[in-house]
Every structure is written in structure tokens, then in C-alpha cells.
Amino acid sequence: MEVFLVSLLNGLVYGMLLFMLASGLTLILSMMGVLNFAHASAYMLGAYFAFTLSQHIGFWPALVIAPLLCGLLGAAIEMYGLRRVHRNGHIAELLFTFGLALIIEKVVQMTWGLLPVPYRVPAGLDFPLFSIYGTHFPAYRAFMLLISLLMFGAIWLGLTRTRIGLVIQAALTHPDMVGALGHNVPRVFTIVFAAGTALAGLAGVIGGNYQVTEPAMAFTMGPIVFVVVVFGGLGSLTGCFIASLLMGLIQTFAVVLDYSPADLLKQFGVTVTSATPFHEVLTVPLPRIGALLPFLLLVLILVFKPRGLMGTRDT
């Protein structure tokens, strides 16, 4: 029970961090079809911006300004780069963002150096909120949970209750029709890309001090975000939300469940010894591959359900 409760909390927090990263990408990918490899780079930039800003004006202003800076950068990238590349097809867009990711990584290295920077949790949030069976639950984790819930609420309200949100939603499923109705689709694209980048920036501000702010953080965070977005299904914010939580919980619980395929086979009376073929694979316990499960799930769901969990469009 103890382990279960703590794991549940851990899984929720991790899932919500994933959601913060993935929500921006799901907007961009669903709407513009761009496999944005620079998304994790925006996450990294958010963390670095927040680090520099918090040294001068403190953490709280940085929490607002750093994502805005990322958003502005995103808007500029869309208006002067992506829009031009758009007519050359999706692979061109993908490579454009790939090139961008390489450049951002190098620029970050040249600006802030190769080593991690001391971006710390603000003193006001650096205390254990409560203890559960002797394990502290840091206040900053609760703060992360709060921000991501607010974010989910804001995106959901923005998409369903505002005019531009409705246009975006319509463009998710019927981009051509929206254009035909006289909406400025390129401007909508710019807004979506800027908003997506800003969300990634916000995730960076929140996640950068929770994890470690260093030049490799984009590289290590990249693939898992794609997994969440595609698993959740394109065009569905709810799908993305569920997928994020699911991935968070699965990885958390995989750690505590110490079983291997060999244990399963034992239930059927088959004993795995070192002479059994593939015994190396069969004796792998679940915690050892916990962090790989998202990739396995991604392959499985796409093979049987190419739209992902709740996708409204073919991926």
C-alpha cells in the first residue's frame, strides 16, 4: 500500500511533466503535420532562459518571461523559416527542424558552456510539502503538478471557448475547409507554432531545475515526447493527456513490479534455465526494461491502431 500510493503520486507528477512537453508538440504535429525535432530544444532553451533571467530578476518573473521568449522565437521560426519550407513537403520540414535542433544545441553550448548550469529550485518552494510513510513529497513537485493542471485547463478552455481556439480545432480536422472559409490559416499556423514552442519553454522552466539544465537535456528528452504524442493520437488533446499519464504510471509501476517472462512461464509449468533458448531475454525482469516500455507500446499500438489511442486523423 505504501509503495503503491507513493508510486501513484510519482507517476502522476512524471506523467504531467511529459504532458507539458507533449501538449505543445501535439498541437504542432496535429495541425501542421510537422515532426518537430526542435521541440525538445525549445524545452532546453526555456530552462536556460529561466536560469539566466532568474539570476537577475528572480524565478517568478522568469516563469512568465522565459516561455514568452520561446514563443517569440517560435513565431519567428515559423514566419521566416517553416512557412517557406512548408511547400517542399513534410520531410523538408522535418529536416529543417532537425537542422535547427543541431544549431540550437551548439549555440547553447557556446553561450552557456558545456557543463551543467546551477539552475535551482527557488527557495520559496524548496521544502517538503508533506511526508507519506516517511518519504518526503517536495513542494516543488506539487507546484509542477499545479502548473501542468493549470496548463491543461488553459489549453482546453482556449481551444473550446475562444474564437481562435475554435478555428484551430476546426483546422485540426479540416485545414482546407477552414482556409476556404476565409480564415487566415498561415496566421493560425504561426500562433499554433508559437504557442507550442512557448509550452515547451514553460516545461523547460519547470523541468530544468527539477532535473539538470545541461546541453544534452534536449537530446535525451526528444524521443519520449514523440512517443507520447503519437501514442495519444493526433488531433486529440485528451488522448495526449491520457497517454502522458499512462506513460508516467507505466514506467513508475514497472519499477516496483519485479517479475520476468520466466515467472509468467512458471505459472504454466515451464521452467527457464540457462539451457533454454533465449533465456537471456526470458529472464529479464520488468524494472530492467521499464524505461523501454513506452517504445514497445508505441510499436504495438501503431501496428494495430494507426491512429493512436484517441486520434481523430490517420498519422
Binding site: L35, P223, E280, V284, L292, F295, V299, L302, V303
Partner: peptide, 26 residues
């Protein structure tokens, strides 16, 4: 079984899995 983006994503997942296995299994 799939094409387009789904194909790309399956190959990405598979690539990560095989790369991880290459380190794990002697």
C-alpha cells in the same frame, strides 16, 4: 502494416528498442 507517419514512428520505436537490446544482451 502501416505507411506514412505511423510507419516512421514504428521504425523509430523499433530502432530505440533494438539499440537498447544491443547494449543489454551480451
Amino acid at each position: 502494416k502501416q505507411r506514412a507517419t505511423a510507419f516512421a514512428m514504428i521504425t523509430m520505436g523499433l530502432g530505440e528498442l533494438v539499440a537498447a537490446c544491443a547494449l543489454m544482451f551480451m
